[in-house]
Amino acid sequence: MHDNHALIVVRGLSKRVRGPEGEIRILDRIDLQVFPGESVAIVGASGSGKTTLLGLLAGLDRPSEGEIILAGRRLAELDEEALAALRLAQIGFVFQSFHLLPHLTVEENIALPLELRGERDPERVRAALASVGLEERRRHLPRTLSGGEQQRAAIARAFVTLPRLLFADEPTGNLDRKTGRRVGELLFRLNRERGATLLLVTHDRELASRCDRVLALSEGRLHSEAPA
């Protein structure tokens, strides 16, 4: 497919950081295209640069070299405010350590992206709660939930704005195998239902295998892997 149709276009992306023993090249001239509705898994060993790549694609960090075009916008041309606006409009996030706000209830955490957009839609929040099976827990604070429940709440928060893109960073990394599997199923089900594009960073080969494409990151370069 042509670049014009891609939701994410990456060209010659590099990231270098300065370490105690000199400069380290984490990502080395990466090219990538992700198309709407596609699910892409990025796998690799610890320290291979998976999370760095995710951060760069989501506009959370700036590359040393190269270009990223996300939903038709060149990220390099956007300032912090514009990047935040882009994330708010287009992207949902699911993190390994859930990142729910500790002082907000489950319901308030899910409503947070809507509030940031200036929308008040209790119906949509209730629907999101129902979609992850947390209606009964809606008034609970995150610290009173199990890890699996917290990740389900985080998934509901990610989908509540119906984002075009979902970035998931090791979404099952903090969960036991059984809970991880359930959370994975929920993530893929909702992604299918909402028609979002999924970019998944994971160690979990089983979870990665559910994606349309699996890309392996090693020594800073991205290689295609055949789905299992």
Partner: peptide, 16 residues
Amino acid sequence: KDEAAILRCLGAGPRR
């Protein structure tokens, strides 16, 4: 700090 980072990540700009 974590809360602020989450807000930033979810789409709140520095000014907001």
